[in-house]
Design a binder for these strands. Structure first.
Length: 434
DNA sequence: TTAGGGTTACTC
DNA sequence: GAGTAACCCTAA
């Protein structure tokens, strides 16, 4: 599994401003396995589902499912907010079936059987930490309410939903806090700290850069800039938030960073902050490409653009880049397939290009030619695609927030506007204001 | 990157 | 043919 897939999946799942992400579909499209190494990503997915449910105002038995999944994913001791959220959500799920005056006339008894006898009964049998004293008390009261009209009426008129939502919100806040920064954010933060550190060590660029290659003493985690060294040491398995990297995954990251460094090494006299901006922009471009691809993977087939015939990327296969690489940096102007072997050769030739340090020079990542907006043949006009109400709404909101900065508008809502260029946005706005 | 004019495809 | 929406081209 490609490390970038996981980073971007995590980024998308945690981007709560993106209303179109379905964590379940996303993880399914990216074909994540069931290995325990991906727990963080899966926990993020469950939390995102919970968050979306709350946004929709849904507190139902699907919420109970999510809370149970969350318990199974987490290895640590279950928190009090988790227990309370489950308890009050279960009560709310039952309360909604207390609509008839006589409990025996409605679905209340069915809900009791389904939720409390079967579902929570199974939890008790498995020794689940979700079974709290509070939950047991609720079970007693609800079952008593079947025979006790006064109890039934009192529960029926209580505002359980508010309490359930409060605990769910508390749980979400707590769990997002426990997860900490996403991998991309963590890398960006570390890079920023490192760049700042470089600025503080004037006239000793080599040493300061070497310093970047050490393992973070506080976290013990691999620094983004030390991946090449980690490879040499064989200690390359623990990247924050994505702990299930395979060797080729590390290599891909290595390529990204090597490519970035290649672009900045020749201008060491430049300000460090400007090189940081370059890295950020490169990451943003890569993110955009991956996002477009992921969006196409999770969209229903009926909503997809017809693939251009000469776009070689096959969407029916894994979204990860193919092992063969096309070198577009050659001076001959003619592309060729670069094998891992000749990539190694390039690596040996890069010695002395920066600080005299021996590091493999890996091929630049091949941009996935997957954007539906990329012109494959300049003589072919894109098929006409009418704007959806969601796209128009996103455009209106974007203009309201950013003005006529079409690129910013698109970047602010990449999922909805994935199939529109900045020029499309401008043209559509021109039509709208006519 | 954006603006503005032009082109194409479609409907009436 | 006019009007419209989406797309394309090019200059700044």
């Amino acid at each position: 599994m490609e490390v970038m897939d996981k980073w971007v999946a995590e980024f998308l799942i945690r981007s709560q401003h993106n209303p179109t992400v379905s964590p379940t579909h996303l993880l399914s499209a990216l074909r994540f396995g069931d290995s325990d190494d991906c727990v963080t990503l899966k926990v993020s997915s469950v939390l995102r589902d919970l968050y979306d449910s709350l946004l929709r105002g849904s507190v139902d038995e699907g919420t109970l499912d999510l809370l149970e999944i969350l318990e199974k994913l987490q290895r640590s001791v279950i928190t009090e907010s988790h227990k309370s959220a489950y308890c009050w959500t279960a009560a709310e799920c039952t309360l909604r079936f207390m609509w008839p005056l006589d409990p025996l006339d409605g679905l209340f008894t069915d809900a009791l059987e389904r939720i409390w006898t079967k579902r929570i009964g199974s939890l008790k049998e498995s020794g689940s930490g979700l079974v709290s004293d509070e939950l047991v008390k609720w079970e007693t009261d609800l079952k008593k309410a079947v025979e006790d009209p006064e109890m039934y009426q009192r529960i029926r008129e209580s505002n359980i939903r508010y309490t359930a939502i409060s605990f769910l919100n508390q749980l979400l806040k707590e769990q997002w806090g426990l997860l900490g920064s996403s991998s991309l954010e963590a890398v960006a933060q570390r890079r920023f700290r490192n760049r700042k550190g470089e600025n503080n060590v004037e006239g000793d660029g080599v040493r300061s850069r070497e310093g970047l290659n050490g393992v973070d003493e506080r976290t013990g985690r691999m620094e983004s800039d030390n991946i090449d060294n980690s490879n040499e040491n064989g200690d390359n398995r623990d990247v924050e938030g994505v702990g299930c990297l395979e060797d080729d995954g590390i290599d891909k990251v290595n390529e990204q960073l090597a490519a970035e460094e290649e672009g900045t090494m020749g201008s060491q006299e430049q300000e460090h902050e400007s090189s940081l901006d370059k890295g950020d922009k490169m990451a943003a471009r890569e993110l955009k490409d991956y996002l477009l691809e992921i969006q196409r993977q999770i969209d229903p087939p009926s909503t997809r653009q017809v693939q251009e015939p000469n776009n070689a990327f096959d969407h029916s296969v894994n979204v990860t880049p193919q092992p063969s690489r096309v070198n577009r940096t050659g001076t001959s102007g003619q592309d060729h397939i670069e094998t891992p072997d000749n990539a190694s050769e390039k690596g040996s030739s890069s010695q002395g290009t920066w600080s005299g340090r021996v590091r493999p020079r890996l091929s630049s990542p091949v941009p996935l030619n997957v954007s539906p907006l990329k012109k494959i043949n300049s003589t072919v006009r894109r098929p006409k695609k009418f704007w959806t109400p969601e796209e128009v709404e996103a455009l209106r909101a974007g203009v309201k927030e950013y003005g006529k900065a079409w690129k910013d508008i698109k970047n602010a809502n990449p999922a909805v506007l994935a199939e529109r260029t900045e020029v499309d946005l401008k043209d559509k706005w021109r039509n709208l204001v006519r």
